[in-house]
Amino acid sequence: MVFRKFLSALGVNAPRVETVVENPAVRPGGTLHCTVTVAGGGADVDIERLRLELVVRAEDREADGSAGWYNPYTVVAADIDGFRVAAGETVTHRVDLQVPWEMPLTHGRGARIRGGRAAVRTELAVDRAFDKGDFDEISVHALPAQDAVLQAYEDLGFRLHEAEVKIGLLRSAPRMEDRQTAPYWQEIDFFYPESWNMGRQELETVFIAREDSLDAHPGGSPAVTFRHAELDQNVWTETLDAHVRHCHGID
């Protein structure tokens, strides 16, 4: 992101801000390292608050249902207390944002997932006025365990369609409320293999990731749990196939 002027109503006095995300490609459980530089304008300015937010596109908050994201959902945020920037002065802050284990994905197996978007947003508050600034878009890549499950679906003939973030806690899926800790979830939608004769229906899968393991809930069914330390692609593909068929009553 290049320097941009915040709060244009301040005219020549407006500070300019540049946010640089040093590692714009991360995985769940990682840390985003950001540097925020505030350059003073034509007069001394008191910054009431500087906030960095990790935001995602959430289906529930986009009225038109398009690929746009005009009202993103904040996953985590970090605040810097107020400070003064003198005219012409430059102030730099380093800010770390911890990426949750249940962070929605934008990429799987190295490719973008349709509908998955995430960014770092900078907000500056001056004289009780707020400017949320621009997005610095980032990519959230799947954990190795998540990539292995995505690969298993592909090997079984499923085709990845898109992903959607929903706000709230899942209560309909058995056992899920015991595992989900974040107040949101991401559904990853797959088209069924033609051999299953399911037409254009989609299978929604929810990942609930943790440091040591991953729950995959296909179609709101009970989870099949995979432990990161036991990753074996062939075994996991067979396990997922048996689990999904059992949930659907398919031999």
Rank of each mutant, 00 (worst) to 15 (best):
K5F: 12
F6L: 13
S8G: 14
A9G: 07
A9T: 11
V12S: 13
V17H: 11
A25S: 07
G29E: 00
L32W: 03
A43G: 14
D44M: 06
V45P: 02
V45H: 05
L50F: 15
V56Y: 09
A58D: 07
A58Q: 02
G65P: 06
A67Y: 12
N71Q: 07
N71M: 03
V76E: 14
A77D: 15
A78L: 03
D79C: 12
D79G: 15
D81Q: 15
D81H: 13
F83S: 04
R84D: 10
V85M: 12
A86C: 06
A87R: 15
A87D: 08
G88V: 07
E89K: 15
V95E: 05
L97P: 05
V99F: 04
V99E: 08
V99I: 15
P100R: 09
P100S: 08
W101H: 15
E102S: 04
E102V: 05
M103Y: 08
M103V: 10
P104G: 04
T106N: 14
R109L: 14
I113E: 11
I113P: 15
R114K: 13
G115Y: 12
G115H: 11
A119E: 09
R121S: 10
E123P: 00
E123L: 14
V126E: 11
D127N: 14
A129C: 05
A129Q: 09
F130I: 14
F130C: 00
G133Y: 12
E137H: 10
S139T: 14
H141M: 08
Q146F: 10
A148D: 10
A152G: 06
Y153P: 01
L156W: 10
L156R: 09
G157S: 06
H161G: 01
E162W: 13
E162H: 09
E162V: 04
A163Y: 08
A163Q: 05
E164M: 02
K166A: 09
G168C: 06
L169V: 04
L170N: 11
L170W: 05
R171I: 13
S172A: 14
A173C: 15
P174T: 06
R175F: 05
R175E: 12
E177H: 06
E177A: 09
Q180K: 03
T181S: 08
A182M: 10
W185Q: 01
E187F: 00
I188F: 02
D189N: 02
F190V: 00
F191Y: 15
G199P: 00
R200A: 07
L203N: 08
E204Y: 05
E204K: 12
I208Y: 01
D215T: 01
P218N: 03
P218T: 03
G220L: 00
P222H: 00
A223L: 00
V224T: 02
F226C: 01
R227M: 00
E230R: 04
D232L: 04
Q233F: 05
N234K: 08
V235Q: 10
W236A: 05
W236L: 11
T237C: 04
T237V: 03
T239E: 03
D241G: 02
A242E: 09
G249N: 07
D251I: 04
D251G: 09
